[in-house]
Amino acid sequence: MMRRETFRVIAWNGIWKQNTSFAQILGLCPLLAISTNMVNGVMLSLATLIVMALSNISVSLLRRWIPHEIRIPVFILIVAALVTVVDLLFNAFFHELYVILGIFIPLITTNCIVLARVEAFAGKNPPVESMFDGVFMGVGMLWSLALLGTLRELISDGTLLSGIDMVIPGARALQILPAEYPGFLLAALPPGAFIMLGCLIAGKNWLDIRAAARQKKSRPAAPLAASAENA
């Protein structure tokens, strides 16, 4: 079951170990600008996820024909074409959300996460694995932006899922904190996003260190686990 093990490693890399937001700390511009609430964060991550999955497949299929010297412009062209598709889809189906996300959907083209996965993974691996990598990098970004967006929304306004009606018509936002909650504007502003991101990265590092310490204690003489670094 070598193949299954490979997929497990790819998924773990995307979701936790090489998480785009908390470990690689890439794509900070959309992360900080869009994560003011959970719905925006999730929808932008979904757009990025689709682009990453499709661009990883395309590049992986074409990897033998792309000349090494001009690979970056070629990658960018492929990604830009796919982003245009996603951009038009969002405009057609989630128009209100499209207006809010604005420039950040076209900017997925220049998102370094997309280019990093294409360059580091899809250019060297077969299509199925590449698609899987794109999807799970997207899932990693999705849950981290969802978490960041949820926390910022809760602290700044005391609500959850505001703007959900733009995705699911008729759904309503939840008021978590009492209505007299004065609101904490800082959390909705970019400095609040930086502070919150810093706290979340610290939290991830803390969990990693604790897990490593526990592993060391339980298996003091274990051989080094096979490194699954791809990037």
Binding site: P182, L185, L186, L189, P191
Partner: peptide
């Protein structure tokens, strides 16, 4: 700075 940005009225 934090408080005047977050709660300008108060």
């Amino acid at each position: 700075a934090v408080c005047i940005v977050a709660f300008p009225a108060l």
